[in-house]
Amino acid sequence: MSAAAGDAVGEVVGSAVGALSGDAAAQPDEVAAYALRLGDDALVLAQRMGEWIAAAPELEEDVALANIALDLLGQARTLLTYAGTADGRTEDELAYLRDAEGFRNVHLVERPDDGDFAYCVARLLGFSAYQVELYARLASSTDHTLAAISAKAVKEVAYHRDHATQWVLRLGDGTEESRIRMQAGLDAVWPYLAELFETDELVARLGDVAVDPAGLHEPALAYVRGVVHQATLSVPEVAVAPGGGRRGEHTDALAPLLAEMQALPRAMPGVRW
């Protein structure tokens, strides 16, 4: 692997990843905070999806899920790299040297799926439906780097959404057992969807740099509901989970995920790998 091939970030957005600067109306540290939350979502879900490689229901699906994990990891790398330009941290410093309280991802992506394929595709459906709406709008961000990252990512997540859709349809409208399992997967994921669409002051202050997630709720959920109905399943009526990931409050699933992911760089800090 040459250094050129290794620098995926540069490849992804070409020259678009510049350092954050104060030339736009937005504060660089606030743009960085925004990029960080999107990057953390992608990184943590990539880590979860990576657990499926060599454990999928069929070989073809191993390959498909790995593609999705790789797309998400690529998004995470560009977003974290960009976020890091605000204070000179690298993608790896951000990924490996923050504790759970420092992560800004939503709870949906950190929940363990414990090898339950129904949970895996239910989560992917909800998350990618959100991401499609998000990136489609963020491609017009006044921040050129965020716009470039989003323009590329929207094509990737459209495929993820399609993949999840195909599976929810097959599992929902497959066998009696799969219908029960798929409904249970949706029920388990559903309480965590609301957090994706919570707005806060950071987003409000960023104006046209960011996308207000509250505005994504209707189109994303309309898509998901459509798939659920077509799959002959019911839209869950369950209480919303508390959330708080954007403020660094996490479920007890994140710390062990990070402990595994970060073990080596933490044990031997400051070295090249």
């Binding site: 070989l59 073809e60 390959v63 498909a64 593609n67 399609d162 195909q166 097959r170």
Partner: peptide, 20 residues
Amino acid sequence: SLHAPDAEMAVRNARDVFTR
């Protein structure tokens, strides 16, 4: 060649397996 339950999945699996 590959295995898939139906045509829609087959064309998607083909994308993932043969055009990565």
